[in-house]
């Protein structure tokens, strides 16, 4: 019995990928020249952490939020929770070194700027985001209630 043949695929794509790998290898050798293990760890680790930790984490939190709201029959509120939470989380993710105070030693001595309390700023922005979202929800609920009241009984 013959072993199963692996199909080759499009020759154009094969050539394109070969060129891509050649360039990546040329730069990659230089990228890995100093601390190959550390760099490889960061390179692969970034992809693994994102795909197998960060993404499942926020997807699970989101699903739990929607399910929790669904349990109290408020599924349509999902965006009012999701938007401020995601935006706040995004700011935390991007500015984590400043917000967490990881660089609070280096930052003032390098920039001459006082330790300005990025944590406080982030918390304030988060509060504004959630407050604004709550306000929008309240306005929408009021409008809905008024619309239901004004509707003639025949519609019911």
């Amino acid at each position: 019995m013959r072993p199963p043949r692996i199909p080759l695929g499009s020759p154009f794509q094969l050539l394109l990928l070969a060129c891509s790998f050649a360039l990546a290898a040329y730069a990659g050798i230089r990228l890995l020249a100093d601390d190959w293990f550390g760099v490889a760890l960061w390179f692969v680790g970034a992809a693994v952490l994102h795909d197998l930790v960060l993404l499942p984490l926020y997807a699970t939190l989101d699903r739990a939020t929607v399910r929790g709201l669904g349990a109290v029959r408020r599924r349509d509120w999902a965006m009012y929770v999701r938007v401020p939470a995601a935006l706040s989380g995004l700011l935390l993710l991007v500015w984590f070194p400043l917000i967490s105070g990881r660089v609070e030693q280096r930052y003032p001595s390098a920039t001459g700027l006082p330790e300005v309390g990025f944590l406080t700023r982030w918390l304030l922005i988060t509060a504004v985001l959630f407050g604004g979202s709550a306000l929008l929800l309240a306005v929408r609920l009021r409008r809905l209630r008024r619309a239901t009241k004004q509707r003639p009984p025949a519609v019911h």
């Binding site: 692996i6 080759l8 695929g9 499009s10 794509q13 790998f21 990546a24 992809a47």
Partner: peptide, 16 residues
């Protein structure tokens, strides 16, 4: 296919 396998390795370089 072989191309598909290479493409997936290339995606590691892309995402990583």
């Amino acid at each position: 296919s072989l191309t598909h396998a290479l493409e997936r390795i290339s995606l590691l370089l892309l995402v990583g």
